[in-house]
Amino acid sequence: MSFLNVIRRRLMFLILVLFGVTVITFTISNLIPGDPARMIAGDRATPEIVQNIREDLGLDKPLPVQYLRYLEGVVQGDFGNSIRTRRPVLEDLRIFFPATLELALTALFFATALGIPLGVASAVWKDKPVDHFVRVIAVTGISTPAFWLGLLVILLFYGNLGWLPSGGRIDPSLEMPTRVTGFLMIDSLLAGDLQAFGSALKHILLPAFTLGFVHLGVVARQVRAAMLEELQQDYIRTAKANGLSRFKVVFTEALPNAMIPSITVLGLALGDLLYGAVLTETVFAWPGMGAYVVNSIQALDFPAVMGFTVVVSLAYVLINLAVDLIYMAVDPRIREVS
């Protein structure tokens, strides 16, 4: 399998996914009993105004025609206008996406930095107290309602201890750093504004922990399973017979090989974090796509919901593509089969 083949296969899948996602969301959006034209027009609009809007948006056309028009827009990067904010959906997403990505990446960092050592310890001391402890932590993580955990950490670190803020991305009294990457922590450093950086860091800690905790369990379980698999391989026995210490056997032999299958899970985790942020952002008033989409769903603002879904699905496919390529780069067995 060559790199080109992988890319081609993923891109084919991307087209399929985009088609599917738009069909599904479009169908759902037409299931709702409400009339979008009336929603846009407002309660006091005359029937003529509503009719005009309907014609403007092409809502008087048959559904397949409407769908094709929507698809045509999507291909050109036009997701239509949000009913709620009345701005182009793409513009809204562009504003909110970096905040979500920053949160998701921080959460992923947290989940990996803790999840890998926990998974390794769990596998090395299988069926020992450490293993039981890690497995309970992992299952708890997967079983924790993130929205509830968020409230608890707010109660503790904001309410009781007063150490961290309860929501938002940055102290409102501070000036926002110039937008370069859209990541506040990076932008504030670029601007040399340490105060803003500190504030951004403080603001991201609780939501990133909350979001990451759930995936901590996913990562720890995956690493544990992969490590157990590797540790029972014959080459581990050879390494021991060659006199490698237990420490070296675990960290230079088993772990690198165990990380190969784990890359997939980390990739999937990033995808999940992107839309898993939906609930966490709501709790922490984090101004990202998640909070945006929750508000849009509650307002039955389907152009916005469809835009969000398409963008996240796109990110999903691209992450998968990246995972495939990383896979090929690190595993000689796959690379050489071309």
């Binding site: 014959d234 080459y235 026995r237 050879t238 690198p256 090989n257 190969i260 595993d331 000689p332 067995r333």
Partner: peptide, 9 residues
């Protein structure tokens, strides 16, 4: 088992 006794990567 020489096929599996060496580290594959």
């Amino acid at each position: 088992e020489p096929q599996t006794a060496l580290n594959p990567t």
